[in-house]
Computed example of a mutant assay.
Amino acid sequence: MANHKSAAKRARQATRRTAVNSKRKGAVRTEEKKLIKALEAKNVKELPALLSALTSKLTRAAQKGVFGKNTASRKIGRLSARVQALLGK
């Protein structure tokens, strides 16, 4: 338990931030799974929209510090390479 008023506030903020970060991370994982499932099913029509949504969520999460910038970039690069290979570009 916090002994000071400021320490108690930091504890409350940490709890709140953890919940928000967890939600963001979950949203990214969900988008990633949707994209991978579409890749495996070779669903060409949905791929660009799914990749765009994942890129948006990953970039936002990286800006907010949920993921590192390089981690987000690596995930986007690898998945977009898979999408481009399937689309034939």
Rank of each mutant, 00 (worst) to 15 (best):
N3Q: 15
N3T: 15
H4V: 09
H4W: 08
K5A: 11
A8C: 08
R10A: 07
A11Q: 10
A11S: 13
Q13W: 01
Q13A: 08
R16Q: 04
R16P: 00
R17G: 09
R17V: 15
T18Q: 14
T18R: 14
T18E: 10
A19I: 15
A19G: 12
N21H: 13
N21C: 07
K23R: 15
R24H: 14
R24G: 13
K25W: 14
A27T: 04
A27H: 00
T30I: 03
T30Q: 07
E31R: 09
E31P: 04
E32F: 11
K34Q: 11
K34I: 09
L35F: 09
I36Q: 05
I36L: 11
A38F: 04
L39F: 08
L39K: 04
K42R: 15
N43L: 03
K45P: 00
K45N: 01
E46V: 05
E46M: 01
P48K: 03
A49N: 08
A49T: 08
A49W: 07
L50C: 01
L50Y: 00
L50D: 00
L51E: 00
L51A: 04
L51D: 01
A53K: 11
L54Q: 04
T55F: 10
T55W: 11
S56A: 13
S56V: 13
K57M: 04
L58G: 02
T59A: 07
R60M: 14
A61Y: 07
A62I: 03
Q63H: 12
G68S: 05
K69Q: 10
K69Y: 06
K69I: 13
N70A: 12
N70G: 06
T71E: 07
A72W: 03
A72F: 02
S73K: 05
R74S: 06
K75T: 03
K75G: 00
I76W: 08
I76C: 11
I76P: 05
G77A: 14
R78W: 02
L79E: 02
L79A: 00
S80E: 10
A81T: 11
A81P: 05
V83M: 06
V83E: 06
V83I: 10
V83F: 08
A85T: 12
G88S: 05
